[in-house]
């Protein structure tokens, strides 16, 4: 647990752009909340590797959102089921169902659809909130945390040194 906090503090204290960090949280939410084998995750992984999204924060957040997803699965399933059974949307689903691309994406799976919708709804506010929090943290809490016992322990710790050495 301490290791994770140490890693998180290191990332927040680094010079990495707040947008890159916020985007990592958003990607982690999308990948963590939806079933891993969903085809749209191929695109997400591609973008994650191609774009300069912070991988460390992504991995940390991904673990967190995967845990959340386990608890959130029944809700996602219910949302997906309600959407797929909604009378007003039957025409849309009907046409998508007869299209190879959408069938490949598995839109007609309650969990895939429900969790994708949830992660899409969360993504934009999550990006701005994360970005804002990182900026606020750096301007207001950074000095206090750096001088706190935890901050000093992190700086003096083996993990921090290893991490610094790894990052040059």
């Amino acid at each position: 647990m301490l290791t994770i906090i140490a890693k998180l503090l290191k990332l927040l204290n680094s010079n990495v752009s707040p947008s890159q960090l916020a985007l990592a949280v958003c990607f982690a939410a999308a990948l963590g909340l939806t079933p891993l084998s969903s085809p749209h995750n191929i695109l997400l992984v591609f973008l994650l590797l191609l774009l300069r999204i912070n991988l460390s924060l992504f991995l940390l957040s991904w673990g967190f959102f995967t845990l959340i997803a386990y608890a959130f699965d029944p809700v996602s399933h219910s949302i997906g089921l309600a959407l797929l059974q909604a009378d007003a949307l039957q025409g849309l689903w009907q046409s998508l169902y007869n299209n190879n691309f959408w069938r490949f994406l598995g839109f007609n799976n309650t969990l895939i659809l429900g969790s994708t919708v949830v992660s899409l709804i969360l993504a934009i506010p999550l990006f701005f909130i994360s970005r804002l929090l990182i900026i606020k943290y750096r301007s207001h809490l950074f000095k206090w945390v750096s001088q706190s016992r935890l901050g000093l322990w992190v700086k003096g710790g083996k993990i921090f040194n290893t991490y610094q050495a790894f990052n040059g």
Partner: peptide, 15 residues
């Protein structure tokens, strides 16, 4: 009941 983490596949009329 769909297994946790698997969801349920809903079918529609196919051409």
């Amino acid at each position: 009941k769909p297994a946790r983490g698997e969801g349920q596949w809903i079918t529609f009329t196919e051409q």
